[in-house]
Design a protein around this nucleic acid. Structure first.
Lengths: 124, 124
DNA sequence: CGGTATCCCCGGGGATACTG
DNA sequence: CAGTATCCCCGGGGATACCG
């Protein structure tokens, strides 16, 4: 039984310093939308408009911004097809992004359990 | 092989509505410090000052605030010993908090790997 | 010892309109 | 189609000082 612990203090990544790796992870995938975006990409690449349709609660502005950050941090890759509008852009997970999928699923299930036990579902 | 998916739109918890359970989870344990605090509580209860000593990067103000939110959301419990200063306060995980520990460890290890592959460790 | 009170700042995120 | 530009607001989080 291996002990899981933060290889701590401190760690650096892309010019930023964190007090531990939990903190680093939360910076990469935290925030209001990043994990949700990764969740929607976990089953394959999707176009910008598809993502937006599946997450109508996010504004286009914010969606675009978060995708850029995920791309910069190496979790998501962006592929452009065509040069004149209408162009087509596909987003998908990188290898690093893929490696986060198991955690994403654990997060999903945990959230599901929380709702089952303490919350409620809303009818569409 | 079970498919893991958000029991989505929409879910409610304590008066808030979320577009999916990933979003809900990130609201409960996201932010800059909550997951880090849970990490430090995973091996047993700790006093306020102990927590602060282990996370000197967090201000007392913020630590106290985040602990309150975690308590309100049912992830952490607070026990007070004594009534006259110096009093003693112990924080520990609730059952719900405990159920999040496996994810916390996954997050820790993922972060460790990211640093090993793309980042660097800082000498103390 | 275990916090609060107060003040402040930054930036994540939203709304709306527009564009190559 | 896939975004930007612009403007704005709120609140998470920090700094400093103080308190029961």
């Amino acid at each position: 039984m291996k002990k899981i612990e933060c290889l701590s203090p401190f760690v650096r990544l892309k010019g930023k310093t964190y007090p531990c790796t939990v903190s680093l992870t939360m910076d990469l995938v935290g925030g209001k939308w990043k994990a949700v975006i990764l969740y929607h990409l976990k089953d394959g690449s999707k176009r910008y408009s598809e993502l937006h349709r599946e997450m109508p609660s996010v504004t286009e502005m914010t969606l675009s911004l978060q995708l850029k950050q995920l791309e910069k941090d190496g979790l998501v890759k962006r592929k452009v097809y065509g040069k004149k509008p209408p162009i087509r852009v596909e987003y998908s997970l990188t290898e690093l992004g893929e490696s986060f999928v198991p955690i994403l699923e654990a997060i999903t299930e945990w959230g599901n359990q929380v709702v089952v036990n303490y919350g409620s579902f809303v009818e569409s």
